[in-house]
Design a protein around this nucleic acid. Structure first.
Length: 206
DNA sequence: TCTAAGATGGGT
DNA sequence: CCCATCTTAGAA
């Protein structure tokens, strides 16, 4: 059941590519895996957003390199996890070369392995799409906290895999969510999600 | 030290 | 649709 051998770990080269928007798109249909203190969970990535450090006002690293954003400047293939609204842990995948602060926010996954474990973390009364249909929810379900900030995605705690024969997924692009402060950059179609997947997060008005 | 967010989520 | 959220980064 918990057979991870069918998930091939994405290589370093996947994350070091220059086009963060392309990477965000490519991550749809891949599998997010966590092994937190022996508890393994896997979710299929169904929604992502791209953030570009150099020309995107919505990006935390735009025009600033601080303690929090430092990890985004590392080479691709690391996790950037930060706390939002004091409560929610949000997972990003750092991309591009060292010194170029790009990242992809993982906004939603569809539970694949260990749904019970996810429910244990979310709360017994939580079922269905309320399990992982949002960036804060999926982090809680998969045991992701700011302790995992800076984690190497080629390690064995937190990584992303693909299946040999990946099913064809219909990908839709749209504007990103909750970034009205980014002015004209809020209009960039840098959110991607799998069409008709019920775990895609609810669209929120900006 | 202090202040002000802030890539949300849940309830009505 | 409305609003509680509360830790922490970032500045002074």
């Amino acid at each position: 059941m918990n057979d991870l051998t069918t998930y091939e770990k994405l290589p370093q080269s996947f994350y070091e590519r220059e086009d963060v928007v392309q990477i965000a798109q490519d991550l749809i249909g891949k599998y997010l895996v966590t092994n937190i203190e022996g508890i393994i969970t896997v979710g299929k990535i169904v929604e992502t957003e791209a953030y570009c450090g150099r020309n995107d006002k919505a990006c935390h690293a735009f025009l600033k390199r601080t303690k929090r954003t430092e990890i985004m400047y590392a080479r691709g293939g690391h996790a950037y996890v930060y706390l939002c609204y004091g409560i929610h842990h949000l997972l990003n995948v750092v991309t591009n070369k060292e010194g170029l602060a790009d990242a992809v926010l993982i906004r939603a996954v569809e539970p694949v392995i260990n749904v019970d474990g996810m429910r244990d973390r979310r709360g017994v009364e939580i079922t269905g799409k309320r399990l992982t249909a949002g960036p804060g929810m999926l982090s809680q379900a998969m045991g992701i906290t700011t302790r995992l900030n800076g984690m190497d995605l080629l390690g064995d705690i937190l990584w992303i895999g693909q299946q040999n024969s990946q099913a064809q997924v219909d990908i839709v692009s749209d504007v990103r969510i909750g970034i009205a402060y980014a002015e004209e950059d809020a209009l960039l179609p840098w959110r991607f999600y799998e069409k008709d997947n019920r775990f895609v997060s609810k669209v929120k008005k900006n």
